[in-house]
Design a protein around this nucleic acid. Structure first.
Length: 553
RNA sequence: GGCCCGUUGGUGAAGUGGCUUAACACACAUGCCUUUCACGCAUGCAUUCACGAGUCCGAAUCUCGUACGGGUCACCA
């Protein structure tokens, strides 16, 4: 039996050759320098923020070079796949405006002419490539059981050798064709291993787009390429898919860095062009002084759904990820206010090549605050309503019932050159403005935060004086403010802060103290947006009611 | 344990031999402004780049050693 026949025996029923596939999936016709890259998750769960980061960076590079960004599903580990994993991934990414040019678009559909894009649907492709290796004496079947592999491992541990299937430990490597045939016909189970041509003592040098020049030992492991379920391992699928799908840049987590010698070896054995590699450092979390990878199990903020639930706008999350990717992004944004993220030229060289960045939620919230402050009141209204529809139905009803009023509330100190920045996410908002809605005001436990003036009698006196002698709902801002001053003077409080600071003993207090009484009487809080506008929105009836409430405590 | 990578303030970082008295942003602190808060403005926050040695007229930047952190060594990706 020759090698060709052996290959047929081991991987039967394959009709296409690798040349056929070369023709089916020709080089892409793209601009010079166009980057073809992909996001290639396993459908084992929801994406986490690190996955989103990776997808965002990949998409951005493809976009800025007029390249292609596609979604490939790596479901070769059938045991770990979850139900509807693909839909969940696509939706989660979609929430953050990650859009694919090509690849899987739903559980049952795909787009593009380089598919199928789901690895479990590509078995015959992998087999065809594996057959090529067997035919050319570059791969062989291995009959070792897991017990035998354990034995080898134990021996290696005992003699302090490197662990793995290589060199003289690779017992199946030297089986004769006759013996292989005999054992196959005997019904023995086998997997396919690479016959690695590498030597561990040889240095392998390559250039990572992010980490720069790397020096690693050559791969000499006879790694598994086809598992006993007939599906390929990651390494082999990477070779076949990224070659056939004409990926130019493999952007992935740096846990893959040490496998580059394997991958490069694989590409070279087929005489394929090796793609460029860009290894991303993971997002870290400070855990009592030590840094560790963000973990979906321990850290709520690791899960992308967290941002959705908290109501942190997707744009803010992406902006933050952009600053992690290239730390000059913020400065660029500052000096290019007329441009958008899409105009930003991201560079591999500027990526963090070190061990990883701490994920800084504070910073994200700050970005979010700035972002939200620039939106119009009706924009905010729509977004909050949208959020509340999913996460706070009580608030949603109020927003719908009082649409105009709500927009007016959001507009306080907003559409101006230096807007207020007091919301960092949608879930913040209700806590800050509940007192504007009677329904909420009535049911809330009221903790009046009176500051300087706390005697009941004086409070009542101020409220009565104000409502009887000065209050007029039709006053404009300036008139309103002047009246506050007049009242201050009348009641013995300083209307001019400078005068008060120079001679505090001449006054009972100052205008700020009086304002505080009115503010707290209306809202219970000592910190609120502009009082004048709050009063305008509340209206006369409300104001009077709330004053009465305080007087009757 | 072997192999690989990394270590600049509380955080993200700029910086790759002299333009650095180490940028910028977040956080923090103080002051100003202000009827409150926020905004804004101003100031402060690493006499020093993990530590030790070396090269050099000159080192955060180059070399070596030590310490610490991360990654990887599966029929998981």
């Amino acid at each position: 039996m020759n090698r060709k026949e052996l290959a047929d025996l081991l991987l039967p029923g394959i009709t296409k050759t690798i040349e056929d596939y070369e023709k089916m999936y020709p080089e892409r016709n793209l601009d010079e320098g166009a980057i073809v890259t992909r996001y290639a998750p396993s459908p084992t769960g929801l994406p986490h923020i690190g996955n989103l980061f990776q997808a965002f960076v990949s998409m951005h590079f493809a976009k800025q070079t007029n390249g292609v960004f596609y979604l490939r599903i790596e479901d070769t580990d059938q045991k770990r796949s979850i139900e509807n994993g693909i839909e969940k991934i696509i939706k989660a990414l979609n929430d953050f405006e990650i859009k694919f040019d090509e690849g899987v678009i739903s559980e049952t559909n795909e787009e593009g002419s380089y598919g199928p894009y789901i690895q479990s649907h590509r078995k015959e492709v992998y087999w065809s490539f594996a057959k090529y290796l067997i035919e050319n004496d570059m791969a062989y079947p291995c009959f070792c059981s897991s017990e035998q592999l354990d034995e080898i491992r134990q021996k290696q541990e005992k003699y302090k050798s490197r662990i793995g299937y290589y060199g003289r430990y690779a017992t199946c490597r030297h089986l004769s064709i006759d013996e292989i045939v005999k054992r196959v016909k005997n019904g023995e189970k086998y997997i396919i291993r690479l016959k690695s041509p590498g030597k561990f003592d040889n240095k392998f040098v390559f250039n990572d787009c992010i980490k720069g020049k790397m020096e690693l030992p050559e791969n000499d492991m006879d790694i598994i390429i086809i598992k006993s379920d007939g599906l390929p391992t990651y390494h082999f699928a990477h070779l076949v898919d990224d070659h056939l799908m004409r990926t130019t840049h493999v952007i992935r987590g740096d846990e893959w860095l040490s496998s580059v010698p394997i991958h490069t070896q694989l590409f070279r054995m087929f005489n394929f062009k090796v793609p460029k590699y860009a290894h991303l450092a993971p997002l870290l979390k400070d855990d009592n002084g030590t840094k560790r990878k963000l973990s979906k199990r321990k850290d709520p903020e690791a899960s992308v759904s967290y941002y959705h639930e908290q109501g942190i706008p997707k744009e803010a999350v992406i902006l933050y990820l952009a600053t992690i990717a290239n730390s000059n992004f913020e400065e660029w944004m500052e000096t290019n206010k007329d441009k958008t993220l899409d105009d930003f030229k991201m560079e591999f060289k500027k990526m963090n090549s070190a061990s990883g960045a701490l994920f800084d939620l504070e910073k994200l919230l700050n970005i979010s605050r700035n972002y939200l402050s620039k939106l119009s009141a009706s924009d905010i209204y729509n977004r909050v309503l949208n959020w509340a529809n999913e996460f706070d139905l009580e608030f949603k009803e109020l927003l719908e019932k009082y649409k105009e009023k709500s927009i007016a509330i959001f507009n306080i100190e907003r559409e101006q050159a230096k807007p207020r920045k007091d919301y960092s996410c949608y879930s913040d908002i209700k806590n800050q403005i509940w007192y504007m809605y009677d329904e909420l005001f009535e049911k809330m436990d009221k903790n009046y935060e009176f500051q300087k003036i706390v005697e009941k009698q004086e409070i009542v006196n101020i409220l009565d004086t104000y409502i009887n002698e000065y209050y007029d709902i039709n006053d404009d801002n300036e008139t309103w403010f002047n009246k506050m001053k007049q009242m201050a003077d009348k009641l013995g409080y300083a209307s001019n802060m400078k005068e008060y600071k120079n001679n505090p003993e001449n006054f009972k207090g100052n205008i700020a103290d009086i304002s505080n009484v009115i503010r707290v009487a209306l809202t219970t809080k000592s910190m609120t947006p502009d009082l004048y506008q709050i009063m305008k929105i509340l209206g006369t009836d409300n104001i009077k009611e709330r004053f009465e409430l305080v007087k009757n405590i």
